[in-house]
Design a protein around this nucleic acid. Sequence first.
DNA 1: ACTTTATGTTATGAATAGTTAACATAGTAT
DNA 2: ATACTATGTTAACTATTCATAACATAAAGT
Lengths: 68, 68
Amino acid sequence: MDVQYSNRIKELRAKNDLTQEDLANKVNVRRETIGHIEKGKYNLSLGLAFKISRALNENIEDVFIVDD
Amino acid sequence: MDVQYSNRIKELRAKNDLTQEDLANKVNVRRETIGHIEKGKYNLSLGLAFKISRALNENIEDVFIVDD
DNA sequence: ACTTTATGTTATGAATAGTTAACATAGTAT
DNA sequence: ATACTATGTTAACTATTCATAACATAAAGT
């Protein structure tokens, strides 16, 4: 089985008026880490995915979208 | 910000009549990895969390539960 | 033109997810 | 009692996430 996913972080940051750095500070990671995640550079941890989703006021599936 | 979560994997395995090894095979990890995740030994990747959720016929938030 | 703010990108290193193998235990079946 | 199935646990190893620093670009303001 395989699961690919993309994300709506950039779009939801704009909606919540947050820079990459703002979001990074909220979830205690580096700005570069947010940038890399937005671009799909790596498969982040579930804990971080939950933190990002909360910081963006969304459910996890509304931020990270499984491709079909 | 911090997010702690637990999971219902063991319960949902039973419901779907899957052993740890069955589930491990479905999502291409080791049996021990499933065991460790069930016991909360580590913060698994989002991709694996999606695979496990699908294999258990559930949404990710119905498998991994954020503590409040 | 110069500065400031937001983001892109790359390289190196540290921390941790997941592998592999090995052995232990408990439950169930024969 | 013995064998088989499912799970627990541990230790050492590999792979990948995330940290950190450094430098680059583009846009907006002064």
